[in-house]
Design a binder for these strands. Structure first.
Length: 599
RNA sequence: GGGGGCGUAGCUCAGUUGGAUAGAGCAACGGUUUUCUAAACCGUAGGUCACAGGUUCGAGCCCUGUCGCCCCUGCCA
């Protein structure tokens, strides 16, 4: 068998092959047997075969006897080298597998750089072409705390997919064609404000925010202004040059302000195709869906019923159709989302589309996917795999959506600034001797890293409680705890005068002590964690793993001296330090978190 | 009414097709430093997995019911 990155999979394949080569065994187990090798509790082994138990139940056999039969076949096979692996039947019929020191050492020797990892992971997704729809920024409004999760989770998922070989297109589907532009244009004209004179896009956006509030207030005071606003919107939609120009300026200011946030949070986008981009592409949607009989008129609107799903059925007590064109003839986000999915198929050849939004839009996407599937398959278009990745709310300590003390929405920039400030005060306190410039650099990485990591480390479908002190703590499952391990390892390297070459060991070595082995066994679980995070696009699996790795390292560090008079011991421990750092840095990079050399 | 999510230690959270004695971190208590960053480590204590049934060799996980919290539910996105 192959000493691959994902050694559990190559083990699985080998065992599969052994079964296929053994007619008696195959007859006994049937074609459906799946060894399903997975990470075991360290006290039992590195991996575990659990598939025997359900199969024995199904066949009415004694599970231990069945396990024994399989084990005998495995052990007599030439494909498994006995000095590499130890098998053991335990409990009701589990098969525990432990990698022996030589295999463990060999795995570590081979996997010495990010490129080695990447060369294997890049095949996982077979260059599937995927469009990821995030972070779907809005326009003419400052970003607030609600924009944190799409940026953070979206970027992490995008990087995970890219690392594993997906050909990814990041499409920022902005909301740039809303009714609020009527009000804004009305106010701009009324106050004779030339927004092209604004230089700083962030300040300009604050100004626009304020103007919109002023506009809404004015409309309340003088309802005739509502007609003015409506008329401005109509002019805009008809392509009036003045209004188009005003609209473009506002969108540009918004995008520049968002770009600045993206830069701070390490978010990358490839395209920014907003709702306005699809405004001339919705008629085809109405036409195709009507012709196919998928869409029909209802209460003046154009809707799609999905009678096969109870809650979307027209027989439901409270009917809930997919409304794709409003009764006034205007498009809505169902129309533009349908136009968008078609565009992604025709222009990006998307084989898969991933949408990132909060949990409240689940019904919308369910309807969108049902509609797209019917529409595309009836038209003979290829149907991409559609996924909705959603998340819960960020809560305050009162278990209600996180707000400022006065009950207002927290601006995203304010959140970032506070994270960096708090990190700065922690860094200054812990290490006052650092140069000012260095402190700020570290504060930036630690603050933003902590903010992002807090968002990624809990299961995304769950709400989570926001807590500054907890996320910036150096204890527990936090970014600072992980970053600190990287810094410590650098410190060891510095002390050891490590030469770059010494870690690329061509010669073999053998890990020995209990703490060395525990750490080494943790390394081989990395690809499993990555695979698990990818399988359901949940980055927290990777976070949990990195936290455990960091803890395992800290335990090793506290029990074993790395810098040692015996050079053989020092060399292998330096290698263990290096691999720890490699996996931590790689894992954090995949999550979108920057690391620092020292703290 | 319908739908989605959730309920696990005092608090914040994990728990991978059902699998071995339900795990972390914080807080509490006790220990470890002439030693590579103690921003760390080691240990103690802490549980009726909301409740009640069911399925089975085995349930935090699956099924049924009940209670409680959050969110969505026709033209905002």
């Amino acid at each position: 068998m192959e000493v691959s990155l994902l050694i559990a999979r190559s083990l699985e394949q080998t065992i599969d092959q052994i079964i296929r080569d053994n007619q008696e065994l195959q007859k006994l187990l049937g074609n459906s047997f799946d060894p399903i090798i997975r990470a075991a509790d360290p006290k039992f082994g590195d991996f575990q075969i659990n598939g025997i138990l359900p199969l024995a139940k199904q066949l009415g056999l004694n599970p231990r006897a069945l396990a024994m039969t399989l084990l005998e076949a495995i052990e007599s096979s030439q494909q498994i080298h006995k000095h590499y692996l130890t098998f053991e039947i335990a409990g009701p019929g589990f098969i525990n597998i432990r990698l022996n020191k030589s295999l463990l050492s060999e795995w570590i020797r081979i996997h010495h750089s990010e490129n080695v990892f990447k060369n294997e992971t890049k095949h996982w997704f077979k260059t599937q072409k995927t469009v990821i729809d995030f972070p779907s920024a809005n326009t003419a409004k400052q970003a607030h705390i609600g924009h944190l999760r799409p940026m953070v989770i979206g970027e992490a998922i995008a990087r995970m997919l890219e690392f594993c070989g997906t050909k990814l297109i990041r499409d920022n589907h902005i909301g740039d064609w809303g009714t609020n532009f009527g009000t804004l244009i009305m106010v701009l004209k009324r106050n004779k404000i030339d927004i092209s004179k604004f230089e700083d896009p962030e300040k300009a956006l604050i100004q626009i925010d304020r103007l919109y509030k002023e506009g809404s207030h004015l409309e309340k005071m003088d309802p005739s202004l509502r007609d003015t606003s409506r008329n401005e919107l109509l002019l805009l939609q008809k392509g009036d040059p003045t209004n188009i120009q005003l609209w473009q300026s506002i969108v540009q200011i918004s995008n520049q302000a968002f770009d600045h946030l993206f830069e701070q949070l390490g978010v990358r986008t490839d395209y920014t195709l907003g709702e306005s981009f699809y405004r001339d592409k919705v008629d085809r949607i109405y036409q195709e869906l009507s012709e196919l009989g998928i869409a029909e008129e209802s209460e003046g609107a154009l809707v799609v019923w999905h009678d096969e799903v109870k809650k979307f059925s027209r027989d439901n007590k409270q009917p809930f159709p997919f409304n794709i064109r409003k009764k006034d003839g205007a498009s809505n986000y169902a129309s533009t989302d349908l136009a968008t999915v078609l565009y992604r198929l025709e222009h990006f050849d998307a084989e898969s589309v991933i949408y990132l939004t909060d949990s409240r839009q689940q019904d919308h996407f369910q309807q969108l996917f049902l509609t797209t599937n019917k529409w595309f398959s009836q038209k003979g278009y290829s149907v991409p795999e559609l996924k909705h990745v959603w998340w819960g709310t960020i809560l305050g300590s009162d278990n209600k959506p996180f707000k400022t003390k006065s009950g207002e929405t927290i601006k995203l920039q304010a959140l970032i600034d506070e994270a960096v400030e708090r990190a700065y005060s922690v860094v200054s306190q812990k290490n006052p001797n650092l140069e000012e410039e260095e402190k700020q650099k570290i504060a930036h990485a630690v603050g933003i890293g902590a903010l992002k990591y807090a968002d990624l480390s809990s299961n995304r479908t769950q709400d989570y409680v926001f807590d500054w002190d907890r996320m910036l703590s150096f204890e527990g499952n936090t970014a600072p705890y992980l970053l600190y391990v990287i810094a410590r390892i650098n410190s060891i390297f510095k002390k050891a005068n490590r030469q770059e070459q010494s870690i690329h060991t061509d010669t073999s070595f053998s890990i020995e002590t209990e703490y060395e082995q525990t750490l080494a066994r943790k390394f081989i679980q990395f690809p499993i964690a990555l695979e698990q995070a990818l399988s359901d696009l949940r980055p927290h699996f990777l976070c949990t793993y990195l936290f455990e790795l960091a803890g395992t390292f800290n335990s090793f560090y506290n029990h074993e001296k790395v810098i040692h008079e015996d050079m053989e011991i020092q060399t292998r421990r330096i290698i263990l330090c290096h691999r720890t750092q490699l996996i931590l840095e790689l894992g954090l990079t995949i999550l979108g978190i920057d690391t620092v050399e020292h703290m």
